[in-house]
């Protein structure tokens, strides 16, 4: 099969077949990570630039290791979001990166759509590592890889996404990916953090955790941004934890073998209780491993094979 994309900007545009190909390709990549010598020469001589407008150590490291395990050279550019409006424009940064002959640019940006603009401006391949509250395709892919590995597939699986849906790119990408693969997706959170008309994306929305988590196979717990409280989206951390923090009591209504995911980093004891986080249902650390494998798969699929010119965007 041919992976015909120039860029990977979101799961909205990927088909179920493409998602399956990425997950299938990630399996042998995970094997490479278990070796003593974690390096193959596949992308030798290729350059990967991470362009991060938001601080993120884990996603950036994950991408850089993925590129290095495949033999590519990596370089990172970090730009403080605060300087976006005063500093060099994204347009000019794109010109600079183009001039450096980067093969792949991995961009994280606080503005939704920034990777899409960049992809239009540069010949290099662009991977979205998170744009505002829009999409975070590689996080959703690693979540899906983890779910598939543990549950065997997606058809008929009940998956609850718990927390701040409105501001979550992880939620949106998971919704796209999981619904395409045949899972039944619910979003659970306070009314102030569930965006309007979300159900048009093919999910069911619940304000009541008991209804929302009932009989689910997977719970993907979202990180709660503490600054949302200051904007009046929930009255206090205490009340949020009481109503939506995942603890043993709430876990009881889910299936006995429920899988608990979290994109990290975790606000310990806030959106998830320590005993659940460290308990047998949680696979948070495996998610991190799988993240590298999924990103290796994407880099391979984007860069190995095919001339850029014949690829459609």
């Amino acid at each position: 099969m041919k992976f015909k994309r120039k860029d990977v900007l979101g799961l909205e545009e990927l088909t179920a077949e493409e998602i399956t190909l990425i997950l299938d390709t990630a399996e042998p990549m995970k094997e490479i990570m278990s070796r003593d010598i974690k390096k193959v020469p596949t992308l030798r001589g290729r350059s990967v630039i991470t362009l991060f407008y938001e601080p993120s150590t884990r996603t950036r490291s994950s991408f850089e290791l993925a590129a290095k395990y495949l033999g590519a050279d990596t370089s990172s550019i970090a730009i403080a979001t605060s300087s976006v409006q005063k500093g060099e424009s994204l347009r000019d940064t794109a010109r600079t990166l183009e001039a450096m002959a980067a093969d792949v640019i991995i961009i994280r940006h606080s503005a939704a759509g920034a990777p899409h603009l960049l992809a239009r401006w540069v010949k290099a391949r662009v991977i979205n590592a998170g744009d505002g509250a829009h999409e975070h395709p590689t996080q959703a892919l690693l979540d899906m890889f983890t779910i598939r590995e543990k549950k065997g597939g997606f058809k008929g699986l009940k998956v609850a996404i718990l927390g701040d849906i409105t501001h979550s790119r992880v939620a949106r990408s998971n919704i796209w990916g999981l619904t395409k693969m045949g899972a039944e997706v619910r979003v659970v959170g306070p009314a102030t953090l569930i965006p309007p008309e979300i159900e048009r994306l093919g999910v069911k929305a619940y304000y009541d955790w008991e209804e929302g988590l009932k009989d689910v196979d997977v719970i993907n717990v979202l990180r709660i941004q503490l600054e949302r409280q200051k904007k009046g989206l929930f009255p206090s951390i205490r009340e949020y934890t009481k109503l939506y923090g995942l603890d043993q009591q709430k876990l009881q209504v889910a299936k006995p073998d429920v899988l608990v995911l979290h994109p990290g980093p975790v606000n310990r004891g806030i959106e998830i209780s320590p005993d659940v986080q460290d308990g047998p249902h949680a696979v948070i650390n495996e998610q991190v491993t799988n993240g590298v494998a999924v990103r290796m798969a994407l880099l391979y699929l984007l860069m190995a094979g095919g001339e850029k010119d014949e690829l459609s965007a």
Binding site: L21, P28, E31, G305, G306
Partner: peptide
């Protein structure tokens, strides 16, 4: 190559 050879597991 103009296609992607499917990468499979080394076991």
């Amino acid at each position: 190559l103009d296609y992607h050879p499917q990468v499979r597991k080394t076991e």
